[in-house]
Write a protein that binds this DNA or RNA. Structure first.
Length: 457
RNA sequence: GUCCCCAUCGUCUAGUCUGGCCUAGGACGCCGGGUUUUCAUCCCGGUAACAGGGGUUCGAAUCCCCUUGGGGACGCCA
């Protein structure tokens, strides 16, 4: 059987971590099994859906590199299909029109609340034959009485629900739009989805969808309900838990692979391995070793993963991704390597590179102005030796440097610190030998001379 | 409240299906030490868990039951 999965986001906000993780699992599963991925936009809530959200979600998916084969298909463009399907169910006496008004429903809900019960539609219109003309109606599914609803979940095994715990749920709203449970099940059936991989929060919707599948005589897909991601307080991840849209992670300097790696590893494991390439994840992925219990999101571990992934990321791609423009003559490879070792995210990495980037030639700051006369005279002496010896390779630089220190009985720190500040404008930077090599002879001399000149005025 | 799902270090997890190799392994974090010209990195060491109670068995983290705890769902939201 050819595998086909779907991402089915609803465009009511930005793409969140939970949604991304299920997208990742779908992606890995599809790629592993040479399957197809469909993107379906579940925009059946007229009020809350927006085009901005849709655009942002698709952009986030693309940014992550989670590409798809089919779609995006918008459910709002398929209204006639759902309508026709619902009418057919009415003809077959599997669904019916309900003319109960919103006010009547609210009354029942209030009453239930007052009695400390949960509202359940009392099937008022289930057997009524009248058709009040011109009144708004919804279409409800005729949930069979006293039936066991069965389905299989990859992770949780056989699940049986008694139909008495369900009510006659709405499949078409009064505005003519289908509800989630109806549209989703219908589409999954019609679009030939073989595996539904989604969050555990949908587990209790599944019986309703199974009823829909059965009523249109379609074979059930394989269900996999993945555990939820929880916040630090162990409740469902939400706005309270801080920035959680993918966009915000992008802005905070995370690599797509870091997010994919971390999120995949949250609820899935392959032995003791922590760091994966995309291909490693694909080839080792399997649905049946997903964790069944919810997982708490840990931003510190994400940050660690990001750090490692940055280190593993090819320099050329890093240069391209960050649009790095180096000053002429700079040893780019060494610069990137030196800075990769130290940084936790892309933003910091770029900042550490400022001293050798074209875009930031004004690297000077107040630190440089704070250098004292001692430093000035020290550098004056040093530059003479430096100009004369012209060391190029790291080893030569090191030799010239240490020889100079020994001959003049100067401590490493008293020369290295001012030099570092002068050359990079910051107190924290790669090693001083690396700095000298990265900038190269010409730039080093230029910067020292400029500094001396400025301080002689 | 009703229904469903789940349960190993603070967190993510390996081990559970197919009981013995588990005096429970790895990782993040934290603590301590080392390397170092700065900030980091890096290296070494340490910390810490089978929710509780009953079974089954020669033997249980692993199988069964109960309790407890956690999560989710109960919308003309998805």
């Amino acid at each position: 059987m050819n595998v086909k999965v779907r991402f089915a986001p609803s465009p009511t906000g930005s793409l969140h971590l939970g949604a991304v993780r299920t997208a990742i699992f779908n992606y890995l599963f599809a790629k592993k099994n040479n399957g197809k991925i469909l993107v379906r936009i579940e925009d059946t809530d007229k009020e809350r859906s927006s085009n901005e959200s849709l655009i942002e979600i698709l952009e986030s998916l693309r940014w992550l590199g989670l590409d798809w084969d089919e779609g995006p298909i918008k459910q709002s463009n398929r209204l006639e299909i759902y309508k026709a399907a619902a009418d057919k169910l009415i003809d077959e006496d599997l669904a019916y029109r309900c003319y109960m008004t919103q006010e009547e429903v609210n009354l029942l809900k209030d009453k239930a609340k007052a009695e400390n019960k949960v509202y359940k539609y009392p099937n008022t219109w289930r057997e009524k034959k009248e058709n009040p003309n011109g009144r708004d109606f919804v279409i409800r599914f005729k949930t069979p009485y006293q039936t066991k609803i069965n389905f299989n979940d990859t992770l949780r095994g056989n699940i049986t629900i008694d139909s008495s715990t369900l009510d006659d749920f709405i499949i078409i709203k009064s505005d003519g739009f289908p509800t989630y449970n109806f549209a989703s099940a219908l589409d999954d059936a019609e679009m030939g989805i073989t595996n539904i991989i989604r969050g555990e929060d949908h587990l209790s919707n599944t019986p309703k969808q199974v009823l829909i599948f059965n009523s249109i005589k379609k074979k059930l897909p394989n269900f996999t309900h993945v555990s939820m991601i929880l916040g630090k307080d162990k409740t469902k991840l939400s706005k309270r838990h801080g920035a959680e849209s993918i966009n915000s992670f992008k802005e905070k300097g995370y690599l797509p692979i870091s997010i994919i790696n971390y999120l995949a590893r949250l609820g899935w494991a392959y032995g003791d391995q922590e760091i994966f390439t995309l291909n490693e994840m694909i080839s080792n992925f399997s649905l049946d070793n997903l964790s069944k219990s919810p997982a708490v999101f840990d931003s510190e571990k994400l940050s660690w993963v990001n750090n490692i992934q940055i280190k593993n990321y090819p320099n050329s791609e890093l240069k391209e991704r960050l649009k790095l423009e180096f000053i002429d003559g700079v040893d780019e490879e060494l610069a990137i390597n030196a800075v990769k070792e130290k940084n936790k995210d892309l933003n910091e990495l770029q900042k550490s590179l400022n001293f050798c980037l074209l875009t930031n030639e004004s690297y000077e700051n107040e630190l440089i102005n704070e250098l004292d006369n001692q430093a000035v005279s020290e550098l004056k002496k040093f530059i003479i030796v430096w100009e004369e010896k012209k060391p190029k390779e790291i080893e030569e630089i090191k030799e010239v440097f240490t020889n100079y220190l020994n001959e003049n009985e100067i401590k490493m720190k008293s020369l290295a610190l001012p030099l570092r500040i002068l050359l990079t404008g910051t107190k924290s930077s790669p090693g001083i030998f690396e700095i000298l090599k990265i900038l190269g002879h010409e730039i080093v001399i230029e910067r020292i001379k400029k500094f001396i000149k400025n301080n002689e005025k």
